[in-house]
């Protein structure tokens, strides 16, 4: 019988003011153990002030095969960037 501990993804906030960042995964039987294991594996040197863990199966990821339709449309929308607009030289700050 396969009774191995599920995989959890670990996200660490390195200090207040910064976002949580994915740093790897661990195995644990439940959420409490997941937090404890994440602490032992990923914060031995004060790398974090907050940890999120989520069982990997709950993450929905985009498929790289669809990257074209997902991300390429943004490429020809240069008008979303300030440099698309011409200003007279006299305008210093805008």
């Amino acid at each position: 019988m396969d009774n191995s501990w599920p995989i959890w993804e670990v996200f660490i906030r390195s200090k207040n003011g910064l976002e949580h960042r994915h740093c790897g995964s661990i195995h644990a039987a439940d959420e409490k153990m997941a937090l404890e294991n994440a602490r032992d594996v990923y914060t031995r040197r004060m790398e974090g002030v907050s940890i999120w863990v989520v069982e990997s199966k709950y993450i929905t990821a985009s498929n790289p095969e669809n990257n074209g339709e997902l991300f390429e449309p943004a490429q020809d929308k240069v008008y979303r960037h300030p440099t698309f607009y011409n200003l007279p030289d006299e305008v210093k700050h805008m």
Binding site: S4, I7, G24, S25, I26, H27, D40, V41, Y42, R44
Partner: peptide, 17 residues
């Protein structure tokens, strides 16, 4: 810890612990 970082990286290639 290093062993665990590396097992975790290896598992992303579709092999279980």
């Amino acid at each position: 810890g290093h062993g665990l970082y590396l097992y975790s990286a290896c598992e992303t290639l579709g092999i279980s612990r």
